[in-house]
Design a protein around this nucleic acid. Structure first.
Lengths: 348, 348
DNA sequence: ACAGGTCTAGCAAGCGCTTTCTATCGAGGG
DNA sequence: CCCTCGATAGAAAGCGCTTGCTAGACCTGT
């Protein structure tokens, strides 16, 4: 049926061992022999049997990238960047970077981790906010430990480091300074004169959500301004729409709304518009992440730009071992406040 | 180091064969024995060795989903839908749905196909427009043939069927009626009175690009309206921005611009705004796909909604064999015209 | 001319699992 | 009460590849 190593060997009149070595290029083979083998490979349309190879070598060339929502460009951008660093490593044996969509479900996250462990993945990148449930965190930590033990390089990207003992197996952690970015955003609003600011938070129990809320509250506290209403929701447009309405119900005098991310912010904008409120004249709105479309909203969204591409690329490189961080090292990426049309001064 | 089947067998005081059978559940095993084995698995934290298993069984549980741009929600939505159908098939052995980002590069597409073949993938889903280069098309067709031969189920989603002989190995093809959708969109513009319509096309040599252009031209031809300027570009916002400027340079009297997709349309809108033109009063703009953010643009984008989620889910089911199409079957999804604020009548 | 290197290539032993074939044990049927 | 059959479990032969070790062949330097 399909050609095997042995077939190639026979055709090239060498031993299977030699073919394997030509293919892996990690052992001296005379140029003439190599040539002959390569020709045979070509003529037979030979394709290495991955499972067999992985079994014998006890490693595979799979690299898993876990994302919470593949339909969200926030993850798409990071995954894309990571993948391009992993794909065609020159010289290195081709790796297969695959993205796994957990959909934010803890079970699926664990399932994927198990499947990757089963495949003896060479590396695993976990992106985006982590769930704060202690049980789940422990389960993930345990799995990661198991994976690392089996030789996988673990990289966290856009999520905080694991608690002390569990962080051990993690090769590198890239975090976003969500707290700081959020704080600067709120400071911007305060500087514009806003005093009644509503907050549309992301899903509860997520690190990202908590950090952004904390930054917001810290800015308010520093300014001696009491926090406005806060409601939680998922990271989608609909949730932003509903939340904005709820916020306004809780406090009709709001002059600004800060959202968990850009998508949610756009939903909030829609709700405000539907109520006949003008942005930013009646209410200012701000998002987070600075996804590509934020600039096309009406008005363009004030938000915090996160270096998603850069972080993803770095994560990819770390996963490939192309770059090192001090073991268990942590690098933090900071956000940049992008002031645009959706925020403005309060009416005097 | 890591526990193996044999370890589990020893602990459960049965043979490896029995453990394997319990795990695969396709052979009668006495309840008591099964119980004992399961306990041992648990106690040892045993995780099946994927490569070994795939090697012995000559199949794997990998399902590849190829996308052109993972950062583009167009693909993200399809991939997400497909993945959720593949993920937790109840009963069935857990499959690992992985998405591979080709970045639109023909080489990477082929590389991924080879890697999936190497892994003995159980199924492969190719999404989005295909390159029309005959050499590449032939190479892809050949690879797909090889994959199918090795037992992989092939599903095309959002791309036209392969040319006659090559379509053979393809289990199912889901196409979008890009031509029809595009035609209706242009008809809408014509009905509004537009006669000078510029077109921002996608990358050349892509089926999607060609079909959308054809639909547009067909509508114009039917109405006896001469085509306006057309420029090609990639599927990103920047490209839309540049193209719109170019279009206006070619014909300053344009009253409407149709874009290859929503992202491009938003770029075009930005360009028009920067030139001080009002949408839709001076120029109408239309997109394609109806991605979630199109509705938040200013003004909201008139576009053609494609049932991305539905198509992706169907593709996932087909890939899993949960659903059948007549062999080599083709299903076509139609787009729905969404008229919103970005298009309006021409000034009388 | 010979001992000691340096290069290449082959042998063969697995890697951990699946699966066919065979063996065993009881339980009915004759 | 012996034999046959169904239900379970085990033995063992691979699946296709990698790699440590060994074996020639050839080249140095002395």
């Amino acid at each position: 049926m399909t050609a095997t190593l042995a077939d190639v060997a026979a055709r090239a009149r060498v031993s299977p061992a030699t073919v394997s070595r030509v293919l892996n290029g990690n052992y001296p083979v005379a140029a003439a022999t190599r040539e002959r083998v390569l020709r045979a490979v070509d003529e037979l349309d030979y394709v290495l049997n991955g499972p067999a190879s992985s079994l014998a070598a006890a490693t595979s060339d799979l690299v898993g990238i876990l994302v919470n929502d593949i339909a969200d460009p926030f993850f798409g951008i990071m995954a894309s960047a990571a993948q391009s660093e992993i794909g065609g490593g020159p010289g290195a044996r081709e790796k297969l970077a695959v993205v796994c969509n957990t959909g934010g479900s803890p079970e699926r996250e664990l399932t994927y981790l198990t499947l990757l462990q089963r495949q003896r993945a060479a590396a695993v990148i976990l992106t985006g906010g982590a769930l704060e449930d202690p049980d789940h965190a422990a389960a993930v930590a345990a799995k990661l430990g198991r994976l690392a033990e089996a030789g996988a390089r673990i990289v966290l990207c856009g999520r905080p480091p694991l608690a002390a003992p569990a962080q051990g197996p993690v090769a590198a952690t890239l975090t976003f300074d969500n707290r700081g970015g959020s704080r600067r955003l709120t400071e911007h609003l305060l500087a514009l004169g806003h005093r009644r600011i509503g907050y549309v938070a992301g899903p509860e129990e997520r690190t990202t959500t908590r950090h952004r809320v904390e930054g917001h509250l810290a800015a308010l506290a520093d300014a001696g301004v009491p926090p406005g209403p806060l409601v939680h929701g998922s990271y989608d447009r609909r949730s932003g729409y509903d939340a904005a309405n709820e916020l306004l119900r809780l406090d009709p005098s709001l002059t600004a709304v800060v959202a968990a991310n850009d998508t949610v912010a756009l939903g909030a904008c829609a709700a405000l518009r539907d109520r006949g409120l003008s942005i930013p004249d009646d209410v200012s709105v701000a998002g987070f992440d600075d996804l590509p479309f934020s600039t096309d909203a009406a008005p363009a969204l004030t938000t915090v730009r996160l270096p998603l591409h850069e972080a993803g690329a770095r994560a990819g490189r770390l996963a490939m071992g192309k770059e090192q961080l001090p073991p268990g090292g942590i690098a933090t990426f900071h956000g940049e406040l992008m002031v645009r049309g959706s925020t403005g001064g309060t009416r005097a």
